[in-house]
Structures are given as structure tokens and as C-alpha cells.
Computed example of a mutant assay.
Amino acid sequence: MTPMRRRTLALLLLAATGTCYGKTFQFSGEARAVNGDVLYTEHHQVEGECSQGQFRPLDHRVEYREQDQSEGFADKVLRYQRSPLQPEVDFNQPRFDESLRISYPDGNTIEVDWQTPSGETRAFNVPVEGRAVVDAGFDNLVRQNWSALQQGRSVEFRFLGPTRGELYGFILEPSNHPELDADLEVAIRPTSMLLRFLVDPIQLGYNARGALTHYLGLTNIRKNSDTNYQAHIRYDIASYPECELTP
């Protein structure tokens, strides 16, 4: 069979199953402190496929840069082949000699390898329990429950605290925050009363097409070796995939 015929056959098979490769989803964000100062920028590129008319992410690359700089100071790669809610994660912050790896050695375990800013290496094996969400999987959780959130319903899930090696109970619920101006606004907060005193809710805003436009809360970028930045990140969409982001 010639290469051209192989390609044609592959396209026909993809069309028959309702699956095709989608255009790259690209967006960028500007993180600002409470006083309005720009802390850093984020640059996202998500490769995926269209399945039954909806975009499914496969590989997501993020580069973090200082304002007006072309070179990154940190980077993250997420691979969603396992699940849109549970990506493999490879995150690096060289300025603090920190790295974080999240993988899945089997279907029931989340493996975390963390090199801390102090030079210590910590490893955790976390049993998968309930509706487990890892890292940016929360973004896909919102889209999977788009209609329910629009109707005012909430969604409970368990979120990985990678540097603690534990899954914590959280709830995703409709919100109305004065600093957000979005078509859909939601908050992520702990279900534990104790954690509610220790962890502020994360506020998210989405446009009508299901793209994240606002993130308000604790980020994964370090201010120093002990604390991470709190920021309001506003996102601009450069290109959408060829199919819908939401059901």
C-alpha cells in the first residue's frame, strides 16, 4: 500500500469512529499581584483530538516567563493520555532547583516524585480514590460539568496535594466574585472545615465557549523557597481547536 493510500485509509477510519485531530488550542496569561504589578506570564499550547465533536486534550505545554522576556524561567508538560482529569505532570522551576513528577505506575496509584528547593527528594504513592483530580485536570472537570454548573449545581471531587502526598476533598461550585467578569464563574474550596480556615478558595472565570479567562488564587510559581505567589491571572485566547471545548 502506498503512503498516500495509508494516509487516506487512516483518515477514513478516524472519520468512521468520530475521532480526528483538532487544531492546537493556544492561550496566554498575565499574572498580577494584588497591587497590580505583573509577576510573570504564562504561555500555553494544547495539542488534542476531536472526539464526537468535542476537544480532548492530549499534550499540554506551559512556559512561564518574566514580563517582556522570550526565555522561560519555569516549564510544565502535562500528558492526558490516561484521563482528562489525571494528567502525567513534569514541572520544573530551575531557579529554585525544584522539580515535580506525577505518574501512574498502575491503574490505582498516583506516584509523586518531588525535588524540593532545599535539595531534599520526597516520593509518595497515593491510592486513587473517588473522583480524583490532578493538577490542571480541574480545568477539564469544569468543562465536563459545564451544564450542571450553569444550572447552579456543585461538584465534589478529590484533589491531589502533590507535596503532601494526599488526596483532599474539594467542591466545585458556581460563584460570583467582584474581581471576575466572566460568562461562568466558579470557585474551588475544601470540604473540610479545618482546611477552609487554612486554604482560600480558588476563583475561576470562563467565557461562553468554555475557555478559562480568569484564575484568582494561589499559583504554582514560587515567590521564594517557602511561599508561592497569590495572583490574578487573566488569559487571552490565541486560537481555539476545531471542535467544541464543552459538551
Rank of each mutant, 00 (worst) to 15 (best):
P3A: 10
M4E: 13
R7M: 12
L9A: 14
L9K: 08
L11V: 01
T17R: 01
T19S: 09
C20P: 01
K23S: 15
K23R: 15
E30K: 14
A33Y: 02
Y40R: 15
T41R: 15
T41H: 12
H44V: 05
G48N: 04
Q52E: 14
L58D: 13
Q67S: 08
S70I: 14
S70F: 14
S70V: 15
E71M: 07
K76E: 15
R79D: 05
Y80C: 07
Q81M: 03
R82K: 11
P84D: 02
L85F: 13
P87D: 07
V89Q: 08
F96K: 06
D97G: 09
L100M: 15
R101P: 09
I102S: 09
I110D: 06
W114D: 11
Q115A: 06
T116L: 14
E120V: 09
E120M: 05
R122Y: 07
A123I: 05
A123F: 07
F124D: 08
N125R: 07
V128N: 00
V128C: 01
R131T: 12
G137T: 04
F138K: 03
D139K: 08
L149Y: 15
Q150P: 12
Q151G: 12
Q151I: 00
F159H: 04
F159S: 05
F159E: 01
G161I: 10
T163C: 01
R164K: 14
L167R: 01
L167M: 02
E173N: 00
P178R: 06
P178G: 11
E179G: 00
E179D: 09
L180G: 09
L184F: 11
V186F: 02
V186Y: 05
S192C: 08
L198W: 03
L198T: 11
D200H: 02
P201V: 03
I202E: 02
Y206N: 02
L212T: 10
Y215P: 13
Y215G: 09
L218S: 10
L218A: 10
L218P: 01
T219R: 05
I221Q: 15
K223L: 12
S225G: 03
D226G: 03
T227E: 15
T227H: 11
N228G: 05
I233N: 01
D236I: 10
I237N: 09
S239F: 01
P241S: 06
E242V: 00
